[in-house]
Amino acid sequence: MQRSAIFVDAGYLFAQGSTALTGNKVSRASLSLSARSVIEELKAFCLQKVQDCTLLRIYWYDGVRSGSAMSADQTAIADMDDIKLRLGFINGQGQQKGVDSLIVTDLIELARQKAISEAVLLSGDEDVRVGVQIAQNYGVRVHLLGIHPARGSQSPTLRQEADTTSEWDKLTVEKFLSLRAAAGSPATPEATVSQAPDPVIEPAPAKVVQSESVLIASVASSFVAGLQEADLQAIEIFWKDNRGVPPEFDGKLLAQTAEKVGRRLEKPEMQELRSRFREEVNRRRSR
């Protein structure tokens, strides 16, 4: 039986997808991914590229900070059928590490075990080329998928090594990736941290006073109003097995509230903010 597998470098998808949408690379924290839509698009591409071939599964490669929970996007992806989430790590500079070696290892092992005859690879890194070469030696055809402009975002030697090359344009990317509406200050690559910056050294109160409680509620409401429908769906999935605010939203939410209050938040204020976040998400989802 002819079988295929799809290998997705999420770092490439977000970075180059944002470039296709806006003309520039945008912080991942500012992007909203529809997990269901991107998986449907990947399956449709694979079916079009390798007809009469059964899909084994989709391998989704991403990074996570040491000691941090998976993001809502990652949880949504992992929760879907036919998906295998494989995680590398993100270092202190916000760089994704270990992902390329995971792709290479899986590609080679599946080829060696004759588990697949066709592979669709969404990536651009030169480091995965050796995996392509060895898989081809085992008889696997490798179809490289890029995002416009693919020639500018993928290694030339990787493109030359692949059996076929294809490209997703902006219209395709818009089906599953979008910019989040600005709910405050722009997101940064460090937005996944769970601690807000300390803008002033003014002491914080032991409990939440009424005026600040109103301000906290206002920030939470504005923040949630800026989330996309795909974000809300991912958050609901995240809450099935986790508590609190997903890490990709938590740091940004804390930072925006600290800026409004004019100082670092005390623990009771953080707890109230996160509780307000949950209330606002539930309110939007119940409409």
Rank of each mutant, 00 (worst) to 15 (best):
E269Y: 04
L144A: 12
V200P: 01
G17E: 06
T165V: 15
A111R: 04
L107F: 14
A182R: 15
L144V: 13
Q228A: 14
S275P: 03
V26E: 13
D250S: 07
Q271K: 09
R276W: 08
M270V: 00
D169E: 12
L232E: 11
R287L: 10
Q160D: 08
L110P: 03
T19P: 02
V200H: 15
V104H: 10
G23A: 10
A69K: 13
R3Y: 11
A230V: 08
N91V: 01
T192E: 14
E40A: 10
L102R: 10
R151H: 12
S123N: 15
E272R: 15
R36E: 11
Q210E: 13
L265W: 08
G23V: 03
Y59L: 08
T75G: 02
L55H: 11
L33C: 10
G139S: 06
D73Y: 03
K207G: 05
E126W: 08
S66V: 14
N282G: 09
E174S: 07
D79P: 01
V261H: 05
A150R: 01
F223G: 00
S71G: 12
K97Q: 14
T105I: 09
A10G: 06
Y59N: 00
E229N: 04
A220G: 03
V38A: 05
E269M: 00
S37R: 13
A135N: 06
N24V: 06
Q256K: 05
L87Y: 01
S213N: 04
P199N: 04
S68V: 00
S4I: 03
Q160W: 15
A234C: 06
R278V: 05
C53Y: 03
R283W: 15
S27M: 11
I216L: 12
K260I: 06
E40Q: 13
Q95R: 07
E269Q: 07
G88K: 00
E174K: 11
L215C: 02
S153E: 13
D163V: 03
P205A: 07
A15V: 04
G184A: 07
T19Q: 10
S71W: 10
S275C: 06
A162F: 13
R243F: 02
F14R: 01
S117R: 10
P205Q: 05
E269D: 07
E41Q: 13
S218F: 08
L87I: 01
T192P: 01
A29K: 06
Q233P: 01
L158W: 12
L31H: 08
V209K: 12
L13F: 12
P268L: 04
V208Y: 05
T192H: 11
I83L: 04
T105D: 07
